[in-house]
Design a protein around this nucleic acid. Sequence first.
RNA 1: GGAGGGGUGGCUGAGUGGUCUAAAGCGCUGGUCUUGAAAACCAGAGGGGUUUACCGCCCCCCAGGGUUCGAAUCCCUGCCCCUCCGCCA
Length: 427
Amino acid sequence: MLDRNQLRRDPAAVRDALKVRNFHFDLERFAALEAARRGHQEQTEALQAERNARSKAIGRAKASGADITPLIAEVGDLGRRLETARQQFTAVQAELDGFLEAVPNLPDASVPPGADERDNVELRSWGERPAFDFQPKDHVDLAGAALDSEAAVKIAGSRFVVLAGAVARLHRALTQFMLDIHTQEHGYEEVYVPYLVNAESLKGTGQLPKFEDEQFAVSGDERYYLIPTAETPVTNLVRGEILDAADLPRRYVAHTPCFRREVGSYGKDTRGIFRQHQFEKVELVQIVEPGQSWQALDALTGHAEAILRRLELPYRAVALCGGDLGFSAAKTIDLEVWLPGQGQYREISSCSNFLDFQARRMMARYRDQASGRPHLVHTLNGSGLAVGRALIAVLENYQDGEQQVAIPTALRPYMGGALRLELARGG
RNA sequence: GGAGGGGUGGCUGAGUGGUCUAAAGCGCUGGUCUUGAAAACCAGAGGGGUUUACCGCCCCCCAGGGUUCGAAUCCCUGCCCCUCCGCCA
């Protein structure tokens, strides 16, 4: 949610800023709603003040033993008028809230212009892409029987997978490795969180109300949603809280499955496990003071990059252009890992600064030492990393041409010291 | 699933229709005193909205409805917590 004061002060600037992400901000509609809101609010509060004063007077008269019938008669239809005013106010307020909840965050000035991912800007790259003297296979061919899509289709449907044996273990090893590095070396606190959340939580991080059709909802007495990312439950830890400044920054890391409908991606990335309805992710979340968030974004991105470097996987960092930017983000840096099987860099992490956009929706605040007053925090998150995609990257970058895959040095302690994956030949 | 008891400020906790403008205690902040601290005494302190700002006004006693001139208090619904029983990874 954007700052209402900023919107009232300079709506045209907001409209112009949102053009960078190709969002049309309806200035006239906002002005009309805002004017109506103001009128109805003033009227409602004036009537409330009158009611309070009269009721109090009746109370005092009664206490002194006077006859209160004439006073009650004087109140007349005040109650009905107040009820009408209140209903109008509530209605216009709800409409204004609905309008504002659908407005995305303002992109930072450093966000490059552009329509889609082709306009993203490479910031840096790291590592040597492996030079194979053979035609590299993709992860599906490499994993063979250890990656069973047919079984998954039988059990669930498309965009699910069953992993087995050494590949399943590698998947777990990657998860443990990432958690250990982030907790032991990067100063994050590990948290275990619900995988089903309520609508309020999704609203807080910005997935609702606009992206209802991208979520899996669970039917039952309570309306629950499967989390699309750990960002949702973890960031909502601070929803409605007023934190001590001394408690900031908060750095959380969580490993969770993520569930996505992938409604807009029919026919896209259908081979293998690159794009699934269910996948695992190790997520980094930071809650920081407003002055610290840009620095925190660099640090957080660096923490995700550290995993790629230790796994010795070639990658590049790109700044998302305005058109590719997510709804809540002011700025996003994607990390893209080199996948020999696809011959291209693909997203494996997305690191974003949301400034106070999520915090305002969540009313997540901290008490400023100097003023003693609550202020909105800034929130950030990033994948550190997507586990399934890291699995793809390891398989494809560490293949040796003979249906063998070496295990990255950093992962060997998590694989019982093994040097290579035990993969069924020709599987 | 069954039976019962509860949700009031940072915490404990009073309040069962009208100066509630929410008691009191603890804790907190500032001051007096003191070399400093403690004690004592004095004072102060919640959140949100509206407003350029101030003053003011409005809202907030779990949440949403209702009754009433007036609701922390009465009624309905929901959520959450606690105790006991049952079931359960």
